[in-house]
């Protein structure tokens, strides 16, 4: 890629920052050069975030209806999934799955609850609550 061909499409995710790429100058030499956004990257980043938002909204609706645990909502809201939640808490996956069943959360021990709260970066008492909107 030539230096002047580096896309500069002002990705909103970069919030005014730019990242560094390596590209070729007009003498054929590689130089580091900034890039403030590229369509391809922006699409796939939006897509990855939208997927977590979709999962969180879906969990929010089911939790509202009592068909899912509020913990599931908080998990997706923090861009995690079952595998990641098990890895970060150090709990077995099958036990996390069990804790994610509706009605299981209020029965958790304080220690277990605080581990979830810690890895989700959410106060322990917030885990039972849902915001007004997802």
């Amino acid at each position: 890629m030539k230096k002047e061909e580096i896309p500069q499409q002002n990705a909103k995710a970069f919030m005014g920052h730019s990242k560094l790429l390596y590209a070729v100058d007009d003498q054929g030499r590689y130089v580091p050069a900034p890039c403030n956004g590229w369509e391809a990257e922006e699409i796939v980043l939006d897509q990855a975030i939208a997927e977590y938002v979709r999962l969180a909204e879906d969990a929010w609706r089911r939790a509202k209806a009592g068909a899912a645990s509020t913990l599931e909502y908080h998990m997706y809201r923090q861009r995690m999934d079952l595998t990641l939640l098990a890895q970060t808490t150090g709990f077995f996956k099958w036990r996390v799955r069990r804790d994610l069943r509706p009605g299981a959360l209020p029965k958790l021990s304080a220690a277990r609850r605080s581990r979830y709260a810690d890895v989700l970066g959410t106060p322990a008492e917030e885990l039972d609550r849902l915001p007004d909107r997802p």
Partner: peptide
């Protein structure tokens, strides 16, 4: 999702462009 994930691994995760190929060149 899979294709998007491939592109993210290649471009977005601090690779210097083209999945580190420009950096290595």
């Amino acid at each position: 999702l899979l294709l998007g994930h491939m592109v993210r691994m290649q471009e977005e995760i601090g690779t210097g462009g083209a999945g580190f190929r420009f950096l290595y060149a």
